[in-house]
């Protein structure tokens, strides 16, 4: 699989750009969090494309962003559960 570059992305329409980035990010996230991969990828795709490209080149920054997303998601779910039981 050839690396995803900024120029490769620039040739695609905006929605397709996010799909292309998601296709690269998803497998990495799936290895870390199989059940949450789709949701976490969706959250990360709201980040600027330039930052996402950087994360693909730097697995450490991608990993820390994924952990941040998991924390946000869990806090959100805990809040929802608390509201339901209240």
């Amino acid at each position: 699989q050839e690396p995803l570059t900024a120029s490769l992305l620039a040739g695609a329409p905006p929605q397709e750009q996010k799909q292309m980035l998601g296709e690269r990010i998803y497998p990495v996230i799936h290895e870390m969090h199989p059940t949450l991969a789709g949701k976490i990828t969706g959250m990360l795709l709201e980040i600027d494309n330039s930052e996402l490209l950087h994360m693909l080149e730097s697995p450490e920054s991608l990993h820390s962003k994924v952990e941040e997303a998991v924390a946000v998601l869990q806090a959100h779910q805990a809040k929802e559960n608390a509201q339901k039981s209240a």
Partner: peptide, 21 residues
Amino acid sequence: RKSTLNPNAKEFNPRSYAQPK
């Protein structure tokens, strides 16, 4: 610092992982 990530973001559906119907 508050995270900018949105827990209500739309879920991503990967084409390459799509189940055949």
